[in-house]
């Protein structure tokens, strides 16, 4: 019973951060119709930047996020403006292939710079534990959960209450009409892409304490993010957050209670089952 509670809480906490990562990709998809297969690799990039900042200045990942966030925003901006924008609208297949190319670029760029060995970045709170009832939890997980929840709430407020949010929703619902209202559609798409990538800096620093890094790990994060995105119905805010919790929970329960492979496959199996019954996503009406 203890183990179940432990797994459930852990999965729930990590699910919040997964949801945040997927929200970034969902925002990008909703305004540009792009699904990037390099999304997880950009999180790798952010995490490795934190590694360098730690190596050079002994900077805690929770502090270096204030550097990696603007850096990734800039990377996202440049990537969209110079590489993706010229191709957008011509062929959706090409965008997939392009982002697959980016996957190789990032993965192997990191491999060349940092080598293939596993790396860790210590954080001051990394090994701090606390008790929640009878279950022992790690502080970084709780911090990650609270920060992700707060950021998700901020994103929600931004979408519903601000002009930028209205512009994002307008471009999502009808780009032509948005342009006729005076919305600078290209600018909205570029900024949203930059934001989606920059959020990975936050998620990266939240997932960093206690994690081992390896240049090829991005693809698995990409797959998890994509599963969540589809579960959430691609652009449904609440659906995506819910998808994050489901994948986080199933991952934690699977690895705790099922041995080896079957445990790791649980999130995928659950995904297939859910999609067979709700092909438009958890909250989809179609």
């Amino acid at each position: 019973m203890d183990m179940l509670a432990q797994a459930l809480i852990q999965g729930f906490l990590i699910g919040g951060t997964y949801g945040l990562v997927a929200l970034g990709l969902g925002l990008i998809y909703s305004v540009s119709n792009i699904v990037s297969f390099a999304h997880g690799d950009f999180m790798s990039l952010a995490m490795y930047l934190s590694v360098s900042l730690f190596a050079a200045f002994a900077m805690d990942p929770y502090v270096s996020v204030f550097i990696t966030f603007p850096v990734l925003a800039l990377v996202g901006w440049g990537l969209y403006y110079f590489i993706l924008r010229p191709v957008i609208g011509s062929n959706s297949l090409m965008i997939i292939q392009l982002t697959l190319g980016l996957t190789f670029l990032l993965q192997n760029g990191l491999l060349m710079v940092y080598g293939g060995q596993m790396l860790r970045v210590p954080s001051m709170v990394e090994s701090k534990l606390f008790l929640m009832g009878d279950t022992v939890m790690r502080w970084p997980l709780l911090i990650a959960f609270i920060a992700s929840l707060a950021l998700s709430a901020l994103l929600y407020l931004m979408l519903t209450r601000t002009d930028f949010g209205r512009q994002i929703r307008a471009v999502n619902q009808n780009p032509k009409a948005a342009a006729l209202m005076g919305v600078n559609v290209t600018q909205v798409r570029t900024l949203v892409f930059a934001l989606g990538i920059a959020l990975l800096a936050v998620a990266g620093s939240l997932l960093l304490p206690g994690a081992t890094l390896q240049p090829g790990m991005g693809l698995r994060y990409t797959v998890i993010t994509l599963l969540i995105l589809v579960l959430g119905g691609m652009s449904n805010f609440i659906g995506i957050l819910l998808g994050g919790y489901i994948i986080g929970l199933s991952e934690a329960v699977g690895t705790t209670f099922l041995s080896g492979v079957s445990g790791m496959i649980l999130p995928y199996a659950l995904f297939i089952v859910i999609m067979l019954f709700r092909p438009a996503g958890l909250l989809g009406s179609r």
Binding site: Q97, L98, L100, G101, N108, L111, M112
Partner: peptide, 14 residues
């Protein structure tokens, strides 16, 4: 430079 050839495939694709 392990991964250089994959890096170049990726770059070439872009």
């Amino acid at each position: 430079l392990p991964g250089l050839h994959y890096f170049i495939y990726g770059l070439l694709l872009v």
